[in-house]
């Protein structure tokens, strides 16, 4: 089975102070740590598990510059057989339609049976890459999958719904499956994996040849800014014991709970 996985290299913003660049539309990325998008980690792990189970080969794709190659090397280290990186400066700050066009360009004429990607990215979170790629390839897609099993030329997936529900869907291959977090436990990278990765190829494709213009891509980022702050919490300060005493008083005031 020919399997592909798309991963994205995104800034880790969990503990970072974010600053907007002078253009008022983009993030100042300099100095921020970057890592593989959280959803993509699960997609990658799932791809490796499927490869191990049904056999075949796994190609990892990334739309990004050279620095982003780190995430591709991670793919190779945990089990991908080869990697493809496509980039052109025109893709910096690209919208989901442009990214999808680049993804389509990167896949080229290779026919993959199964393409996995994260259900969304932690930076912009559009969640459109997978379905748009599927449309561009003219194949099936299913989004927000938290369980899957390949069965011959079909794949049985569970889509995550609201309120603790799920729906089981059978999808014909080839298909693009967008993976939700929690579907598996992504592994750590091993030293042996890193060493093996060094011997695996990373093809670099020039994205300049990809036609990024589309009706859909007519999205213009007008501004990027800090969200308006609500009233926010009243902060309790002091030692843990002092803070605990304040909390206790609040719980008593709330009435009926203590």
């Amino acid at each position: 089975m020919k399997i592909a996985v798309f991963v994205k290299h995104v800034p880790d913003v969990a503990e970072a102070d974010l600053e907007v660049a002078a253009d008022g539309r983009t993030l100042k990325g300099a100095g921020l740590p970057f890592e593989m998008n959280e959803w993509d980690r699960f997609a990658l792990e799932e791809a490796v598990l499927i490869k191990d189970e049904v056999g075949g080969d796994l190609t990892a794709f990334l739309i990004g510059d050279e620095a982003a190659e780190e995430s591709l090397r991670r793919c190779l280290a945990v089990g991908a057989d080869r990697a493809v990186r496509l980039w052109d400066e025109a893709l910096s700050g690209a919208n989901p339609f442009e990214i999808a066009a680049a993804m389509r360009g990167a896949v080229g004429d290779d026919n993959y049976d199964l393409i996995l990607c994260g259900a969304q990215s932690s930076d912009y979170g559009y969640g459109m890459g997978g379905p748009l790629l599927a449309e561009a390839l003219g194949i099936n897609s299913v989004a927000l999958v938290n369980k899957m099993k390949v069965e011959g030329s079909k794949v049985l997936v569970t889509r995550e719904l609201e309120g603790g529900w799920g729906e089981e869907v059978e999808v014909n291959l080839p298909a693009v499956i967008s993976i939700q977090t929690g579907i598996n436990e992504p592994r750590y990278v091993s030293i042996l994996g890193i060493k093996k990765a060094r011997k695996k190829p990373i093809d670099v494709l020039d994205g300049a040849g990809v036609d990024l213009s589309s009706e859909g891509g007519k999205l213009v980022v007008e501004s990027l800014q800090a969200p308006p702050l609500g009233e926010g919490a009243e902060f309790l300060e002091g030692s843990p014991e002092e803070v605990a005493e304040r909390c206790l008083a609040l719980l008593k005031e709330a009435g009926g709970v203590l």
Partner: peptide, 23 residues
């Protein structure tokens, strides 16, 4: 922007080739 919307909306955007935003 729900489990359903995350599935059909980008697909529709692909089919109609028209600008779309989610969430």
């Amino acid at each position: 922007h729900s489990a359903a919307g995350m599935d059909w909306a980008p697909t529709l955007a692909g089919k109609l080739s028209c600008p779309a935003v989610t969430d």
